[in-house]
Design a protein around this nucleic acid. Sequence first.
DNA 1: ACCATTAGGTGGTCAGACCAGTGAAGGAAG
DNA 2: CTTCCTTCACTGGTCTGACCACCTAATGGT
Lengths: 218, 218
Amino acid sequence: MKEAKERGHGIKEENVYAETLKHIHRMMAEDNLAPGDKLPSERELAERLGVGRSSVREALRALEFLGLIETRRGEGRYRREVGSHQLIDLLAMFLLENERAKADLAETKRLIERLLLELACRRRSAEDVNELKKIVRQKPIDFARFFETVVEAAGNVLLARIWRVLSGFAASFAPEPPLADAGYEQLLAALERQDPAEAAAVWEANGLRRCRNGPDIV
Amino acid sequence: MKEAKERGHGIKEENVYAETLKHIHRMMAEDNLAPGDKLPSERELAERLGVGRSSVREALRALEFLGLIETRRGEGRYRREVGSHQLIDLLAMFLLENERAKADLAETKRLIERLLLELACRRRSAEDVNELKKIVRQKPIDFARFFETVVEAAGNVLLARIWRVLSGFAASFAPEPPLADAGYEQLLAALERQDPAEAAAVWEANGLRRCRNGPDIV
DNA sequence: ACCATTAGGTGGTCAGACCAGTGAAGGAAG
DNA sequence: CTTCCTTCACTGGTCTGACCACCTAATGGT
């Protein structure tokens, strides 16, 4: 009675939804899908992968959650620029109820930013420095663009993604108070001299007051 | 021709799936659902909320994605301990298909471990130090237990969770080369003296060689 | 009292149907 | 010819009903 199973294939035996998710993701990579490109329709994917439309829908919904694709009703689904994370809004909503989580989040974000700065110091190219100089020269300083460049220069995709997720969370309930201009000058100098310790020191010095005390002068 | 719509209710007009998601989440809060408690079944929720089962499924899948509930086939869905960030799991899954990502993963893990060590230096209690002394004294040194204690002492739940995820994935394809015993002695000394800089220095000296030099794998 | 069987509930999946937007093809009016 | 509008095919959104595989607990025979 009990040996009835074993549907022929010995291995996989995972949720169709999870399989489909991986499959579609792999397909996106293999087809070299650029941001803005259109994905096949739900029905076509279902037929091509030999699964039901509902399973395809759940997989696509997950990809949308991860911010990898964008859905336009009546049109289709499109590959999205990485970095715009839809899931952030939802997650933030849930996290709002936990004070401790908020504190941990703020601290973690801050620490990972320090790591990214240190990495950027070691790996930044000459172009990175020029780009940053341009950004700092142009007042008011665009904090987001400054740090995006730093993250790019750090050259660690995983750490960058974690940062973007945390950053999105934090932004949704704790607006970012910008550093003083002098802070950027110092960071830039450290980056140019490839001095990770100096960058970390500047970051700590500029961050502690707002982390500890809360509201402070801009 | 164009004024045909307006299904009676003037406002909402959002995806049923999104509405259902919020609805179920609110319901969980109002019913004071404790971790481990069972949620109503898909079919019951569908009937109670007046929507289709597929919409309920998409909403529940999202909650699962967020780590708020757990699904047990054949049994039901249960409220889960908050704080389990499922999304990072998924993120890692995707990154694992890429060689470059593996190098980034190893580096990120290493860096986050440094952060945890630094935090632990600042926040460790006397008991933490005693615990660590016991672990170090007992050869061969149990690396996992040593670091678990450090992570605990660091007192940042979010960072700890990220580390556990990274650690788990890293272990699955890159066995951990343990530190020399002398390394643990030095780390312990730094922790006892609450000297983050020293701890970080020891960590870098013992580990970063493999991350820095390799030209981003092949 | 024990254990195998059974029945009902639950999530997992699929297929088909219909709705509601979108955009392009195609025809009528200018 | 151009312009405008209708039409139609296609897409995502949703609902329904039907199975399946799985788990639990009640059942019933030994």
